[in-house]
Design a binder for these strands. Structure first.
Lengths: 151, 151
DNA sequence: CTGAACCTTCCAGCCATTGGAGGGTCAACA
DNA sequence: TGTTGACCCTCCAATGGCTGGAAGGTTCAG
């Protein structure tokens, strides 16, 4: 199976398949004489596994662990379950943050007239100062746990 | 105001402030003779604005637009409102995806015994094939709209 | 004067991808 | 047999939003 067919079979782009090969996540079973990657049926299964896990928001490192568990005949299902449940908790945390964002933005937008008068409170809302940080000793390292959401 | 003080005043790390300067998002009002960045009160306001907008999941490009609107006295509040509402829709889309992920993972984990028997359905669930793509003409470009969630 | 806490620039890396250049391979068709 | 043209290869660079570190200049208290 060439990389293009593997791509169609798994829904993973050709570029991504090569990338997964590079980083060692899923390596094709062999190479043809021409240098073409040759994917086996097992590779395809693994790649489908990878795709679904990515769709579920798993990071490549986590998927790597899952693949190890999958390949390891003596794996304990408890390991897999706890990995999955940890992941559910993380997703739920993200969901809560998302909810807060949506709530704040909707609140702000709701109080914005939306006509052409320049009195939309979104901007003033965004520039408002939040609760002040507690008094710190001087010369403290500034560390803000910023979080980012992929676009 | 030096960069360190600006950092404390805004909750944005020193590194980030320099980065924002580099990319032109918020430039310090001036430089001291020594080359130190000097932030004005207005800069601080803008940076707080930026921070809140980032917390709300806005991307830097979008914040740049918002800052332009903020600085432009003749801004139309309708612009801001539509920007915000577009953003709400995007956040809601992400939340739906997140919900699906959580549901799938919970479903799978729920059917996993969690004892040490290696029959956890999470792995088989993850490797299962989804609905097949409709038959395509040969030699079609493979394009999968993959989405990723930041970790 | 010393030292350490601050500041500077530059360079490199993270993650998961995408894009493109510049070239080799393969199969069908004239 | 030669020519398409779709496929494949590697390598290099960029994305966004940072973070870390090296190598060095500045400021200020003791």
């Amino acid at each position: 199976m060439n990389i293009g067919e593997a791509s169609k079979a798994t829904g993973i782009s050709v570029k991504m398949l090569r990338y997964y090969d590079d980083i060692g996540l899923v390596r094709p079973a062999s190479r043809a004489y021409s240098g073409y990657r040759v994917y086996s049926e097992k590779d395809i299964s693994m790649l489908r596994f990878v795709r679904r896990a990515r769709d579920l928001g798993f990071q490549v490192k986590q998927i790597s662990s899952l693949l190890d568990l999958w390949e390891d005949g003596s794996r304990a299902s408890a390991d897999v379950k706890s990995l999955a449940l940890n992941h559910v908790r993380e997703l739920e945390r993200r969901r809560r943050e998302l909810d807060e964002m949506i709530g704040t933005l909707q609140h702000l937008a709701h109080h914005c007239h939306g006509d052409n008068r320049p009195d939309c409170p979104i901007l003033s809302g965004l520039s408002a100062e939040e609760e002040e940080a507690p008094p710190k000793p001087r010369r403290t390292k500034t560390s803000r746990a910023s979080f980012a959401v992929a676009g």
